[in-house]
C-alpha cells in the first residue's frame, strides 16, 4: 500500500514539476507547483510525519503560494518571452541539472543498502504520536530557536511593508 502511494504521488510530483518547467505563463507554473507541494504532503504522511504533512498543506500550498498568485495578479505578469540570454541558459541549464541528478542518484543508489527501507508499522504502533514528540522537542530543547523564529517573522513582515510601500 505504501509502495502504491509512493508511486502514484511521486509520479504526480514529477509530472507537476515538469509542467512547472514547461509552462510559459507564471500562473500556470504557480498552480503546478501547488500540485507538487500537495503530493509531497502525502509523501510526508507516508513517512510518518503527519504534522509536517498538515503544515505543508497549510503553510506552503496555502500561505506561500497564495502570496505568489497575488503578486502574479498584482503585477499583471504575462507570458515570458524568449530572449538571447534564455537560449544560452537553456544550453547551460539542462546539462548542468542532468549532471546534478546523475551524481545524486549514483550516490543514493550505491548506498541503497545502508539506507534500508520504510517501516510504517513501527510508527503506527508507537505509543507517543508524532505531534506529541515534536512538541516535546520544540518547546523544551529548542525553545530559544523557536522564539527567535518569531522575531525573524516580525522582521520579515516589517521588511515586506517597508519594501513594498510607495515612495513619497
Amino acid at each position: 500500500m505504501q509502495l502504491a502511494l509512493f508511486i502514484i504521488f511521486g509520479l504526480l510530483a514529477v509530472a507537476g514539476a515538469i509542467n512547472f518547467l514547461l509552462q510559459r505563463h507564471p500562473i500556470n507554473s504557480a498552480l503546478s507547483l501547488v500540485v507538487v507541494m500537495m503530493s509531497l504532503a502525502v509523501l510526508y504522511w507516508s513517512l510518518g510525519a503527519e504534522f509536517l504533512a498538515a503544515a505543508q498543506v497549510i503553510v506552503y500550498s496555502g500561505a506561500i503560494m497564495v502570496l505568489f498568485v497575488f503578486v502574479v495578479m498584482l503585477l499583471n505578469a504575462g507570458e515570458e518571452e524568449r530572449t538571447h540570454g534564455s537560449r544560452a541558459a537553456y544550453f547551460a541549464g539542462v546539462p548542468g541539472a542532468t549532471a546534478i541528478f546523475c551524481l545524486l542518484s549514483f550516490v543514493f543508489l550505491t548506498n541503497s543498502k545502508a539506507f534500508g527501507s520504510t517501516d510504517l508499522t513501527s510508527h503506527l504502533t508507537h505509543t507517543v504520536n508524532n505531534i506529541a514528540e515534536i512538541s516535546q522537542v520544540l518547546f523544551k530543547d529548542l525553545l530559544l530557536p523557536f522564539e527567535v523564529t518569531s522575531i525573524l517573522i516580525l522582521v520579515a513582515i516589517l521588511g515586506a511593508v517597508v519594501l513594498a510601500r510607495k515612495e513619497q
Binding site: M1, Q2, L3, A4, F6, G10, A13, V14, A17, I18, F20, L21, P26, V36, L43, S46, L47, F68, V71, V72, L75, A77, E80, E81, R82, T83, G85, S86, A89, Y90, A92, G93, V94, G96, A97, T98, I100, F101, L104, S105, F108, L109, N111, S112, F115, G116, S117, T118, D119, L120
Partner: peptide, 30 residues
C-alpha cells in the same frame, strides 16, 4: 510492501534538478 529510502531520495534529487534547471532557464523573476 515497504519502499526503500533511496527511492524517496532519488525523487528528491529529480525535483531538485528540475528546480535548478528552471532556475537557470526561466526569465520571469516570479
Amino acid at each position: 510492501m515497504t519502499v526503500p529510502i533511496a527511492y524517496y531520495l532519488i525523487l528528491a534529487a529529480i525535483l531538485f534538478s528540475i528546480g535548478v534547471a528552471s532556475f537557470l532557464i526561466k526569465r520571469n523573476i516570479i
